[in-house]
Amino acid sequence: MAEPKNENPFRVLTPRPASESVVAPVTGTPAELEQSVREEVERGILFTSVEKMVNWARANAIWPLGFGLACCAIEMMAIVGPRFDISRFGAEVFRASPRQADLMIVAGRVSVKMAPVVRQLYDQMPDPKWVISMGACASCGGVFNNYAIVQGVDKIVPVDVYVPGCPPRPEGLIHGIMKLQEKIMASRVELGPVVPKKKTKKGAA
């Protein structure tokens, strides 16, 4: 077949004639059909909804923001260490910049001077974002009920998971992250911007 000069030279796939079909026509008893579907699945086909897939991807690749404030930060560093390995859960990449992170683990007591900084960092994180309040001081003020400590970081940012402890054991924090993963898997996902329905006007175009 002669190719005209202004045709796309990369289009090299010539259409196959109908007689040479790649896929064999599917016929047979329901049991045979089921068997062939199973074989296809074993070759690597998955049936799911887009929502579940997106949630699964988001849950297993959470990137925390490196936001250690006080003693709980050391336990957070311990989960990066070799004994309680958090890279098993996909969360070892602690980003320094809030623009690249999606989980903010508030680890430690939030003082009144630090509160606007926490809010600013939360606002700088792109959606979807989650917050884990780690430890008693971040959840409710903890040991310190006085003029200098905000009684719970949920007064400043919305919190998804509270992890109690002073400091919580690294296993406790990992449990909190797993609970957050369950929460992510159960959440709704909006794909694309929400487009308002166009109102059709009667009469003039």
Binding site: K113, G141, N145, Y147, A148, Q151
Partner: peptide, 22 residues
């Protein structure tokens, strides 16, 4: 140690502790 716009001298004996009822 305190924010710059803080009013008052917290460790004076007549300044309150700031205890919030739980």
């Amino acid at each position: 140690l305190l924010p710059e716009e803080w009013v008052g001298w917290p460790l004076r004996k007549d300044s309150p502790l700031g205890y919030q009822e739980v």
